[in-house]
Amino acid sequence: MASQGTKRSYEQMETDGERQNATEIRASVGKMIGGIGRFYIQMCTELKLSDYEGRLIQNSLTIERMVLSAFDERRNKYLEEHPSAGKDPKKTGGPIYRRVNGKWMRELILYDKEEIRRIWRQANNGDDATAGLTHMMIWHSNLNDATYQRTRALVRTGMDPRMCSLMQGSTLPRRSGAAGAAVKGVGTMVMELVRMIKRGINDRNFWRGENGRKTRIAYERMCNILKGKFQTAAQKAMMDQVRESRNPGNAEFEDLTFLARSALILRGSVAHKSCLPACVYGPAVASGYDFEREGYSLVGIDPFRLLQNSQVYSLIRPNENPAHKSQLVWMACHSAAFEDLRVLSFIKGTKVLPRGKLSTRGVQIASNENMETMESSTLELRSRYWAIRTRSGGNTNQQRASAGQISIQPTFSVQRNLPFDRTTIMAAFNGNTEGRTSDMRTEIIRMMESARPEDVSFQGRGVFELSDEKAASPIVPSFDMSNEGSYFFGDNAEEYDN
Rank of each mutant, 00 (worst) to 15 (best):
S3N: 10
Q4T: 11
E11C: 02
Q12S: 15
Q20S: 13
N21W: 14
T23V: 13
R26E: 01
R26N: 01
K31N: 09
G34W: 09
G34N: 12
I36H: 05
G37H: 13
Y40G: 00
E46H: 14
L47I: 15
L47Y: 01
D51V: 11
E53T: 01
G54D: 04
L56I: 15
N59C: 01
E64K: 11
V67A: 12
L68I: 15
S69H: 02
E73S: 13
R75H: 06
N76K: 12
L79E: 02
E80W: 00
P83A: 08
S84W: 08
S84Y: 01
G102S: 15
K103S: 03
R106L: 05
L108D: 07
I109N: 15
E115S: 00
R118W: 07
W120V: 04
N125R: 05
N125D: 10
G126W: 10
D127E: 06
D127L: 14
G132T: 07
T134M: 00
M137Q: 11
I138R: 04
L143S: 08
N144T: 12
D145F: 02
T147Y: 08
Y148T: 01
Q149G: 02
R150L: 04
L154A: 04
V155G: 08
M163S: 06
L166H: 06
M167T: 09
M167A: 08
G169M: 04
P173G: 06
R174S: 11
R174P: 06
S176Y: 11
G180R: 08
V186Q: 07
E192G: 13
M196R: 07
G200S: 14
I201R: 00
N202I: 10
R204N: 01
A218C: 05
K227V: 01
K229W: 05
A233Y: 03
A234Y: 11
M238H: 11
M239Q: 00
Q241H: 08
N247P: 00
N250S: 13
N250P: 01
A251D: 11
D255P: 00
L264R: 01
I265T: 10
V270H: 14
C279R: 03
V280H: 01
Y281I: 08
V285T: 10
A286K: 07
A286L: 06
S287E: 13
Y289N: 10
Y289M: 12
E294L: 08
E294S: 12
L298V: 06
G300R: 07
I301F: 12
D302C: 04
S310P: 01
Q311N: 00
Q311T: 14
V312Y: 01
V312P: 07
Y313N: 12
I316H: 02
A323I: 06
W330D: 01
C333I: 10
H334W: 03
A336I: 01
D340Y: 13
L341T: 15
L341R: 10
V343W: 08
V343C: 10
F346K: 14
K351H: 13
L353W: 00
K357A: 01
L358E: 03
S367E: 09
E372T: 15
T373D: 06
S376K: 06
S376Q: 02
S377H: 04
E380W: 05
E380F: 02
R384H: 00
W386V: 06
W386L: 12
N395C: 06
Q398K: 14
A401V: 13
Q405T: 01
S413C: 12
Q415A: 14
R422W: 13
T424H: 07
A427H: 00
A428Y: 05
G431C: 13
I444V: 14
I445A: 09
R446V: 09
M448Y: 05
E449I: 04
F458S: 08
F458W: 13
R461W: 10
D468W: 05
D468S: 10
K470L: 01
K470I: 01
A471Y: 03
S473P: 02
V476R: 06
D480V: 15
S482D: 10
S482N: 11
S482C: 13
E484H: 03
F488P: 05
F489P: 04
G490F: 05
E495D: 14
N498W: 03
